[in-house]
Design a protein around this nucleic acid. Sequence first.
RNA 1: GGCUCGGUAGCUCAGCUGGUUAGAGCGUGGGAUUCAUAACCCCAAGGUCGGGAGUUCAAGUCUCCCCCGAGCCA
Length: 537
Amino acid sequence: MSYTLTTPLYYVNDRAHLGSTYTTLACDAIARHRRLCGDQVHFITGCDEHGQKIQRTAEAAGLTPQAHCDFISAAYRDLWSRWQISNDRLIRTTDPRHRQLVEQFFARVEASGDVVEGRQQGWYCVACEEFKDDAPGAEDPECSIHQRPLEWRDEVNLFFRLSRYQAQIEELIARPGFVQPASRRREVENFVAQGLRDFSISRIDLPWGIPVPGHPGHTFYVWFDALLGYLTALLEPDEPVVLEQILQRGWPAQLHVIGKDILRFHAVYWPAMLLSAGLPLPERVFGHGFLTREGQKMGKSLGNVLDPVVLLERCGRDAVRWYLLRDIPFGDDGDFQQQRFSDLVNNDLANTIGNLLNRTSSMARRWFAGGVPPAGAGADPAHPLALAAQEAADRGAAALEALDFRTAAEAVLSLAIAANGFLNERAPWSRMKQEGQSEVVAADLYAVLEATRWVGVLLAPLLPELSDRMLQQLGQESFESGTEASSSPATASPEAASTAMAATAWQAAQQWGRLQPGLELPEPSPVMGRLELDSPL
RNA sequence: GGCUCGGUAGCUCAGCUGGUUAGAGCGUGGGAUUCAUAACCCCAAGGUCGGGAGUUCAAGUCUCCCCCGAGCCA
């Protein structure tokens, strides 16, 4: 199965912040999960690089817009690579190929009769790149969002006839799974219910944009151009730009993950544009919440922005991923709290999970010839830990499907807690001192090792690196959940490829009793260090 | 100004169509244990459920008003 998901195309007005990192990490977890399940994943991210705001930012920095965009988008590319994001594509809207695609798309929209000329007169916010419908009649109106002066514009623009799609959009957003989380649906419904108005899709006298074919002086409005980046990204980098080809390359997308502030563009404008162009619609749009820091909005004026690069260097990928995914309900706003961050990482990852592996492996090695003990009753599929493992797997998979990372993380964690509890209850260390208990201890330790292996397996989409380290210490191969699809037809065996039911390595690993008795185990060393943050991040 | 969502233990949150002593994890305090990364396991304290009024035999859960936060639209 093909699975296409996207992050927003980030606006290159400034460098990446924690918010975009958060979005991207979440998408990465989904992408990895789908790959582990055998889907052919198209995980798209990118940069939105046009518009007057960019032009002015570049000017202010003494750069050409292109140089500015090159610089910022390179920083994004570098950031995602540092975070080991498994995106398949990183599209830039200044890519010449994108321009070709936009032109083809526009031709279709125009052919549908959805492009009309209209006069746009009013106050304009450059930061929003939007006209403000109802600016106060005052002398110097300001944008309520940016607190910046509005500029008076009076121009002839091209309009997209959004109003023609009223009924279809209403039908779309009424679909149960389309706008997510469901709590955001009404907001969109009300907006649509007010009556959709045509919106302008071009600007005049704005050189930093894609020229509108057949309309000299006009460039495309940034949003019109940016949304289309999702399509351009799907095309193979070396194939000719032919819009129709996206249908062979993974369109429609299964999922657009976005911040809650741009829901309207994705749930209303975007589908209408696609309808006009005669293209299928994405399956769901998920608007996640925003992050604050220690209860305050992050912003340059407050000087409290958390730099993702700093965060990464000081704390590591696993720690940050875990905290963001495990503690903040995706969809709700969340607060980044340093104390809580280190508490959770140390508790869950270092103590509960890391120490579980460490103590178990250490006992097994000491008492059973340096490796995995004979399984005995420990391999029984009805073993309490086997049941716990299966439950964790089921709960985790369902949660990931629902983009409920928190529950997915808790499911894995609960398995580790169950295993720790089991150990304390069975106390192999004291049983080992008694005569004739060796077999029981062997079975107990086997079961706990096996449960620990499952923890490593189930962690793969969420924390690929910790998962790898755990599996290594258990003498297991790690999974390829990164950019190389583990189930790509080229590498899979012919039988596997022909059998639709063939399980991936990851799915096969979720079978109780897979751990080989007698397998030698490497000397355990902590898979997750404790986070000691003595100063503010 | 209008719309939407949220305001439940110190912190992050569960609490479905209203119904026994409001739950979990973290944090805090205590206990147990020694295999292990001062880790693991067990127990406990902690909340007039943002405020006010109302509906009801019964409200965190429904209605209205107000306050606070976030987003959208003006």
